[in-house]
Amino acid sequence: MPKLPTFDDVKGNVQDNVIWKSIFRPGSIYRKGYRDTSRDRALASMNNVLYHLHPVKVKRHGLKLTYTYCLGGLSFFMFILLTVTGIFLMFFYTPAAGAGTEIAYLNMRELSASVTFGQLVRNLHRWGAHAMVFTVFLHMARVFYHGAYKPPREFNWVVGVILLLLTLFLSFTGYLLPWDQLALWAVTVGTNMAGFTPVFGDQVQFVLLGGVEIGPETLLRWYVLHVLFIPFITVIFLAVHFWRIRKDGGISGPL
């Protein structure tokens, strides 16, 4: 009987070929010959498209849980998770309402009744959205109490406030989509307030609702805002936010 290859043999053969080496750049921990040295540790973050959001080295105090409480990172994680679960939900949802065509609401019922993992993914999306509002809010508080908005980080704080508003709008536009009583009337309360904008109140409300009152046009409008427009703007501001953290000299502190 031929000798079976050991795990190390297989690993060596998999790693030691042209294709593998073309995928994993020098410094990758998956590449043959990675060693736990300063050089390879530096390359590991420099040569990876995701990790190089980070600098090669970070301030030691920033690693302590009690400095950032990971809140900015968790906000970003929630955003990613909401994108993934949201794409799943989009497969099963049509933003249509109106007498005789209550498709959106029926889709929500079917999602929990007959789509595999439908209810679970919807729950993740719903609780994730609440969690994101909460983490973004706490992140802001921690930045304030650390005085982390002080020069040169003033503008990144402003970008942050815009991100907070975008997060709220993302959450609020999503709230309407199930098209149940809860959604309709929560949104009515909100958009009525916008109608009291000085001078342009009626116009603002008309643009928000796509009409004079909440109806099928509002649902379509808020759906497009929710799944495309606001996420698009948010991604742009997130890019600026992360880029400014680097350019402002990394995380602030130590206190």
Binding site: R122, R126, W179
Partner: peptide
């Protein structure tokens, strides 16, 4: 979040009625 989503269902009321 996964544990919470496993045990708690997101609310869904009756059909919207203006």
């Amino acid at each position: 979040l996964l544990i919470a989503s496993f045990f708690l269902d997101a609310p869904l009321g009756s059909l919207a009625n203006p």
